[in-house]
């Protein structure tokens, strides 16, 4: 029995047991809402803080909120990564950068806000928010994954034959969604180029 068919069998066993999502109790929304408010506030403060060190510190608070949020959505692995990378490594990296550069003292605590830009971003955000109505609820039986299990089954049974990759997730990521991943790689590459330009260097050395 290959890994693929094992996975398929496991998925097959799982599929019928799905139950419709229960209505969300009030206290869950209380936690969710307050956490979201916390995250949004810290994100805003990070973006608006004029003093870079203050932004770094508040960003630490932001990652605290994000980790709690991930935990709440039962993604402990992501939360652990957020804790280790965002609160730990990123803070140290940013502090190191600050230590190598200079920090300017500001009289004003916050950046001034570019109102037209905020308006444009707000419009875009609102437009995107409208599409949220069509996204199926978490765990909803109407989600395409459940309502049309043939697609899922197809990936589970065919991905090895088509791509030769053992891990279905990997196969989807690197082969079926190759262009997407390629795009991500381009973004990372562009980031590297931008860093080189800023640093006035021509090669990574």
């Amino acid at each position: 029995m290959t890994g693929t068919s094992l996975l398929a069998a496991a998925a097959g066993n799982l599929l019928p047991t799905v139950t419709p999502a229960a209505p969300v109790p009030a206290q869950v929304t209380a936690v969710e809402g307050s956490l979201l408010a916390f995250v949004v506030l810290t994100a805003l403060a990070t973006a608006l803080a004029r003093d870079v060190l203050a932004a770094v510190i508040v960003f630490g608070a932001y990652s605290l909120g994000m980790a709690a949020l991930y935990t709440f959505y039962r993604a402990p692995d992501v939360a652990l990564t957020e804790a280790a990378i965002s609160a730990g490594v990123t803070t140290v990296l940013l502090l190191l950068t600050l230590a190598k550069t200079t920090r300017i003292d500001h009289d004003v605590a916050f950046e001034s806000v570019n109102v037209p830009a905020v308006g444009a971003v707000g419009l875009l955000f609102g437009g995107l928010l409208l599409t949220m109505g069509d996204v199926p609820a978490v765990g909803s039986p109407d989600a395409p994954v459940w309502s049309n299990p043939d697609v899922t089954q197809w990936y589970l049974s065919e991905s090895y034959a088509q791509t030769g990759v053992d891990n279905t997730v990997m196969a989807v990521l690197a082969a079926f969604r190759g262009f997407d991943t390629f795009g991500e790689a381009v973004v990372v590459f562009a980031g590297g180029i931008a860093a080189l330009i800023v640093l006035h260097r021509e090669v990574f050395a």
Binding site: Q27, V28, A30, V31, G33, S34, L35, A37, F38, L41, T42, A45, A49, A54, I57, V58, A61, L64, G65, A68, A109
Partner: peptide, 21 residues
């Protein structure tokens, strides 16, 4: 869960000091 929400609300309050200095 409600208590957790309470703690989050307290955290939001504390955020003022983190931003204000």
């Amino acid at each position: 869960l409600l208590a957790a929400a309470g703690f989050v609300v307290l955290a939001i309050g504390m955020l003022y000091r983190a931003v204000k200095g």
